[in-house]
Amino acid sequence: MTVTAQSRLTAGALDFYHDNGYITLPRLFPAAKFDALRRRFEAALGALPDDVRPEDMDVPHFTDPELFEWLLDPGVLDVVEQLVGPDIALFSAHFFCKPPGDGKSVPWHDDAYFWRETISPAERAITVWLALDPVSEENGCLRVLPGSHLPGARTYRSVGDPDSVFAEELDPACVDEADAVPIELAPNECSIHASTLIHGSRANVSSRRRCGFTMRYISTDVRFNHEEVGDRHQIYLARGVDRAGNQYADPTVPNPALVAHRGTGQNYVGARRPGGARPGSG
């Protein structure tokens, strides 16, 4: 499927997305623009404090407004518009980096479950998952269950694995791993998935790093719960007009105080994790 962010999704591509809950695209950005994003990530990774895991580089755009050059890229928004409509808000972003040898796992989950306190309906968010490194089964690529974005009963339980990124996971009775599809990507390729799609990723025990940049979007008729979570999160109008009375932040103004308020180990969008982070797509 030869779709890029600079072209329209074909009818076949849209049908595949609606049937399966995800799609993959090659070459999201022009080469020079992708290389600039990767350099920006490497600088951010190099500046991490010693006590912060590289998996926890959530909401980097809150303190680095230059990232909006990629997050609000017109070609990316052209693709997003075909999935959420013409009025678009940037919901969140995340550099998700699994270092070689001890990169943490992400248990089976759907994003909407963890975002239900932040946006409503959370089922209408999408994630663009851009590979910054070569991503394969060996180094812990995203794995998805095709068709699992459709409504169905789901039960969560606590995670006992100390190497897991977060503390809740779908009950194994809700997951048939035999149906799992690995999303292997070259740098600058991406996948897009619905917030209700069941997905996860294994730990990275390989000798190769695995990093992706997630860009998350909603229609502006999705309600952002600013009253409850505005002290630790904010959204941005990306295209079109507001439809839900939302409050939008200024992308030119960094907000380090908001990041600080999220606290150590509270780096993910969504419901609070007991003693740890908020989950996101991994």
Results as ranks from 00 to 15, higher is better:
A32Y: 03
S105D: 12
L185D: 08
Y17I: 04
L83A: 10
L9R: 03
F62E: 11
D87I: 06
G265E: 11
S206K: 03
G140V: 13
R143P: 03
A153S: 15
A180Q: 13
R209K: 11
L83I: 13
Q234T: 11
C211S: 15
N246I: 08
G101K: 07
A43K: 08
T155G: 04
H233K: 02
F41W: 15
G212M: 07
V175M: 10
S201I: 04
V84D: 01
C174L: 05
G140K: 05
H94G: 04
A194C: 14
E228V: 02
V175G: 08
L67P: 01
W129C: 08
G140N: 08
G140H: 05
G276Y: 10
A11S: 12
V175K: 05
Y236A: 04
V106K: 09
V222C: 13
Y17H: 10
F68N: 08
Q247A: 13
A178V: 04
V135P: 00
I192C: 03
E189I: 03
C211N: 07
H226W: 08
E228C: 06
G212W: 00
R143H: 12
V106D: 00
H149W: 07
S281K: 00
G265F: 05
I218H: 00
F29K: 02
G265M: 05
D110A: 06
G160H: 09
N204A: 08
F213K: 02
L45V: 07
R210M: 01
D64S: 14
A122F: 08
P279R: 14
R232H: 13
K33S: 14
S148I: 07
L45T: 01
D78Y: 03
C211Y: 00
K33M: 13
E42S: 13
A257L: 10
P274M: 06
P54K: 01
D87V: 06
A277V: 11
N204C: 06
H149P: 06
A43F: 13
D179V: 07
L170P: 00
R40N: 13
A32L: 09
D133G: 08
P162Q: 12
N255H: 15
A238C: 09
V175C: 11
Y268Q: 09
G270Q: 02
R39Q: 15
C211L: 13
D179F: 11
T2S: 12
P99V: 12
R243N: 09
H199D: 06
A43T: 14
V165R: 05
Q234A: 14
H261N: 14
T220F: 02
V106H: 08
L142H: 03
D163R: 12
V76N: 03
H226E: 11
D242S: 04
G230K: 02
T264M: 10
L170T: 02
V144H: 07
G212D: 04
L48V: 05
P86K: 10
A238L: 06
V59I: 10
Y236G: 02
R116F: 04
I218R: 00
Q266F: 09
R39E: 15
T127E: 03
T155M: 09
L150S: 10
S136E: 15
A260K: 06
D171Q: 07
G140F: 06
